[in-house]
Design a protein around this nucleic acid. Sequence first.
DNA 1: CCGAATCCTCCTGGATACTG
DNA 2: CAGTATCCAGGAGGATTCGG
Lengths: 120, 120
Amino acid sequence: MSEPLDPDMFAGCPPVTGPVRIGDKWTAKIIRCLESGPRRFTELQAPLRGITPKVLTASLRAMERDGLLTRTAYDEIPPRVEYALTDLGRSLIEPMNAGCAWSRAHLAELTEARASWQAG
Amino acid sequence: MSEPLDPDMFAGCPPVTGPVRIGDKWTAKIIRCLESGPRRFTELQAPLRGITPKVLTASLRAMERDGLLTRTAYDEIPPRVEYALTDLGRSLIEPMNAGCAWSRAHLAELTEARASWQAG
DNA sequence: CCGAATCCTCCTGGATACTG
DNA sequence: CAGTATCCAGGAGGATTCGG
């Protein structure tokens, strides 16, 4: 439930996920990272391959605003902040999986079409 | 199969469809327009509420490049061009419907969360 | 450790006008 | 009818630096 995230968990994902997109550039990956339990800011940074703090903060704030996740700050030293999915955020996993299923089934065709267009 | 498109067919759709997005801004709507059969350039412009020719052309070209639709030009006067979905394009309808289902079920929660954030 | 502040660049999408 | 050509504004995403 709280094993460390694999820094390479998105290594197999193509740079462009295809036509099906959830939220902005990072939303879907953040949801995947939180699927197995709450995570800290720095934990999220690792698998998200060099995302800058500003962009990660912006994405998390937007998702919090939309009720997709909650932010909990513990008043400790050193500071600790945890992000966790809400039920609403978790409900996005279903359409996300539909998108991933499409990609697995058809993304190769799309890539091929794009390549043969470049050739022609 | 070839009845004229309702110019208001997207009137009920909220300006922002929510977190689930297919392709770029217009891709999903274009697919909906072509679902019931091939359509001409001008036919598509009507329900897409004032999309400029340049943007519609760009979207159609991108979708043609990706193998989502075909473009057929008939050498007549006046000129006639028809756009039709490919099987690959049609395969996107399934994840699209999943996204629409999510919106119908949860978009209100998201909007509400966003509003109460603004208030707080 | 968890950000905020500032500055910058690219890309999407659009307005407007014109053409075979 | 079905586009093309040109110009332009806004916002997403990023680099870098600084603070509590």
